[in-house]
Design a binder for these strands. Structure first.
Lengths: 111, 111
DNA sequence: ATAATCAGTTACAAATAGTAAGTAGATGGA
DNA sequence: TCCATCTACTTACTATTTGTAACTGATTAT
């Protein structure tokens, strides 16, 4: 008997969000464009990985990179329409976490 | 100036879902309890990782393990209330993937 | 005895992530 | 002119996580 197949689109979406940092990056870009340094500080990700993730997200059409040729150079990352359309997903994760994550399950409570 | 902090509960939720396989496992358990072998087949995960993930999910209170002492032994994994409450999140991911993932972005289109 | 079934576990190789130092391009000061 | 500064990355290296495939243990049918 054939086993229940998983919808390939859902799988693709999960393989985006189910990768470390990706969800947080999208979440941090939800409200406003941000700069590279800003993202590393807020998220606590290394430059190496942030750079890699942003390239992937750009490649997937979720994030847009804008160069402002000021001095020193300013580069802003923002969500495309496709990226911004993840807002309901983010909102549901937020809602769930408010209802079901106890303070004790939190990273900072580990310290 | 202090940078925008990320809500620790949201971070905890994302560190659950933002781990490989976890989202898929929860998704596959959404409709009905399933057995170990069934999950490996449907998801395409190895026994080593499935075992590890299920232990974590049990530890986080999302999944419940039930032993049926038949022969051969049958063990069922099901979602707890906490796990099942992720349904709206899953539904939103599904919705998003239907609207925004093109067939070309799909894993099977790579073959 | 032997084999079969299920639910894992083990040992090891391959891929990915984390860390810290370094590079590049533009400008401004000594 | 030379050095320092500011961002936005890269590079080299180590540590952790993942993937693969073979193996174990308990139970029962042949």
């Amino acid at each position: 008997m054939k086993s229940q197949e998983i919808c390939p689109r859902f799988e693709a979406a999960i393989s985006l969000l189910g990768q470390r940092w990706t969800g947080l990056i999208i979440h941090q870009l939800m409200d406003e464009p941000k700069r590279f340094g800003q993202l590393t500080e807020e998220i606590g990700i290394s430059g190496r990985l942030l750079s890699e993730r942003l390239k992937n997200l750009e490649g997937d059409g979720l994030v847009e990179r804008t160069v402002h040729p000021e001095t020193p150079v300013r580069i802003e990352y923002s969500l495309t329409e496709k990226g911004a359309s993840l807002q309901p997903v983010m909102k549901e994760i937020e809602r769930w976490s408010q209802n079901w994550i106890e303070p004790a399950e939190t990273a900072e409570s580990t310290s």
